[in-house]
């Protein structure tokens, strides 16, 4: 029941988001058809506006947009006039999702063990080295990581291609570049969680029962410490799956991250609103999934 309500609640939320995105991008100065080359007559400009109904009052444009949206049509891109926003998402989203999924797997695959080890060996050298790398991963932004990876592994060692999106081989460096920040984040969250859990009463009680330290950490502390990681994973996955402007740009990857940024710079109204909705939808869905995972991981959590 709770989850049904949440899903129903998402509909007005998406409506509000679409209205806000629509209004904001139309309010921004400059339009999609402003360019260095001015048309030979002002009529041409008017023809363009009329063709895409930009000459109508904004509420009417929004009504038209919602009408199309009900039919599953996100409209035509105003910058790439031969393409629908639907095409654009259909082409870009699987690519961004693959890259995001890989980065997510990489972030958890390295971040969780790193967090676990640093917590289990607290204060000793594995903790110091591990924590150093975790902080480093968080601090160094992807626009530094990516060129560094390219320079070392693509230009010098020639192990991987420098850019483009063709084979699994092409996916390694971008996934690492995209995931590195989250490794640090995940490791730090898990470490904090485990240290807090290790001091909680039920762990002390379990220890008093004579449970071994490894089993204690893993069976009890880890499971509780995983909760903050899980709740962080929802927005993180939404972030990763919708692509990254920087990584996609540097590796020339045909995902939707590049469009997320460029469409607003280009005032490509339909793309901005379409992608905002997509992002919102993913965020809502993944948060729901996180809440669902909570009930599974922690029996104390119940939703009414």
């Amino acid at each position: 029941m709770y989850f049904v309500r949440r899903i129903l609640f998402a509909i007005p939320l998406l409506l509000i988001i679409s209205a806000l995105a629509f209004a904001l991008v139309h309010l921004a100065p400059g339009g999609p058809f402003d360019s260095e080359r001015k048309p030979a007559s002002p009529e041409i400009e008017r023809n363009l506006q009329a063709k895409y109904h930009l000459d109508e009052p904004i509420w009417k444009q929004y009504g038209r947009y919602l009408g199309d949206l009900l039919h599953g049509d996100f409209g035509v891109s105003l910058k790439y006039r031969n393409h629908n926003v639907n095409d654009l998402i259909a082409q870009g989203l699987p690519v961004s999702m693959t890259l995001g999924g890989l980065a997510f797997a990489f972030a958890l695959g390295v971040g969780l063990p790193l967090g676990f080890i640093t917590a289990a060996r607290r204060g000793r050298w594995p903790d110091q080295v591990g924590s150093f790398f975790a902080v480093l991963a968080v601090c160094v932004p992807s626009f530094v990581v990516a060129p560094a990876l390219i320079l070392i592994f693509a230009m010098k060692l020639k192990w991987f291609p420098v850019a483009l999106w063709e084979s699994p081989w092409h996916m390694v460096l971008p996934a690492v570049a995209l995931g590195s920040y989250f490794i640090g984040k995940v490791a730090r969250i898990l470490r904090e969680g485990m240290l807090t859990a290790a001091q909680s009463e039920f762990v002390t009680a379990a220890r008093a029962k004579g449970l071994g330290e490894t089993a204690l950490l893993f069976k009890h502390a880890f499971r509780i410490a995983l909760l903050p990681v899980v709740s962080y994973s929802g927005p993180m996955l939404a972030d990763l799956l919708t692509g990254s402007f920087i990584v996609e740009n540097i590796f020339q990857i045909p995902g939707i991250g590049v469009f997320l940024v460029n469409s607003s710079l280009n005032r490509d109204y339909t793309v901005v609103v379409g992608l905002s909705l997509l992002y919102a939808l993913l965020l809502i869905a993944l948060n729901l999934a996180v809440d669902f995972a909570y009930t599974w991981l922690d029996p104390r959590v119940k939703y009414e």
Partner: peptide
């Protein structure tokens, strides 16, 4: 005018 070509000039 329907084509809305910016370079119609």
């Amino acid at each position: 005018p329907q084509t809305a070509s910016r370079y119609a000039g």
